[in-house]
Simulated scan of single mutants.
Amino acid sequence: MAKVNETGSSGAHKDWHLSYNALALTRRAFHGHPLTGDEPGADELIELGIVVYEPWNRRYAAVDLQRLQRRVHAEQRARISDLLHEQTTADHFFEGMARLEKEKVSGIQYAADFGEAQAALQSALAGATSLIRTAHPITRPAESLKVSLSIDLPRLERGVGLKTIYPDSARARGPERDYAKTVSEHGAEVRTIAGSFIRCIIIDELLAVVSDYRTVPAPRDTGWLITHPGILAFVTQVFETQWEMAAPWMGDRARSVDGGTITNTRTREILRRFSRGETIKQMASGMGLSVATINSEISNLYEQTGTSSQFALGAWWASSDERKLTP
Score class of each variant (00 low, 15 high):
L232W: 04
V52Q: 11
V216P: 02
Q310C: 06
G11L: 05
G41H: 01
F311A: 06
G11V: 09
F234T: 14
D15V: 03
Y20A: 13
Q282T: 09
H31W: 15
T307F: 02
T227Y: 00
G187R: 07
E95T: 02
A172W: 03
L68R: 15
A98V: 02
P154Y: 11
L313Q: 14
L48V: 04
T307L: 00
E101H: 01
Y302Q: 07
G277P: 05
R266F: 12
T236I: 05
I203G: 02
I193H: 12
S275T: 05
L153F: 02
L45R: 07
N300M: 11
R255S: 09
S275F: 00
D221N: 10
Q304K: 11
I80P: 01
P229M: 09
A98R: 04
A172K: 07
A318W: 09
G277Y: 01
I138H: 09
A78C: 00
A312P: 00
E39N: 01
T192S: 08
A180Y: 04
L149H: 11
S256C: 06
D168V: 08
G96Q: 10
L65I: 04
T293M: 05
V257P: 00
T215A: 08
N21I: 00
V72N: 12
P229H: 13
G187F: 02
V209M: 11
R323S: 04
R171D: 01
V72E: 15
A194G: 14
A218M: 10
G96L: 07
S169F: 05
L149F: 06
R58N: 14
F274Q: 14
L65Q: 06
T215P: 01
A315W: 04
F311E: 11
N5F: 00
N57D: 10
L156K: 15
V210E: 13
E176P: 14
V238H: 10
P34R: 10
D252A: 08
A74P: 03
N295R: 15
S309G: 09
G127N: 04
R214V: 02
L225G: 01
L65D: 07
E240M: 09
L84H: 02
R191L: 03
G288Q: 15
I151W: 13
A42E: 01
A312Y: 03
W249Q: 02
S299E: 15
E39Y: 10
A2I: 15
T215V: 13
L156F: 11
F311Q: 10
D258T: 08
E205C: 04
K14C: 04
R158H: 06
Q69P: 05
F274E: 13
R268L: 13
I151H: 14
T293V: 12
R191A: 04
M287D: 13
T279M: 08
G259D: 09
T279D: 10
G277E: 03
W16P: 01
V52F: 03
R177F: 12
G161F: 00
A90R: 12
W243L: 14
T293C: 09
C200N: 09
L35W: 13
T227L: 03
L45D: 04
R79E: 06
E189S: 07
L68Y: 04
H85R: 07
L225A: 02
G161K: 10
T267K: 06
L100R: 12
D82R: 15
Q66A: 14
T263Q: 03
W56V: 08
L325W: 13
R171P: 00
S150T: 10
A78K: 05
G41T: 04
P40C: 08
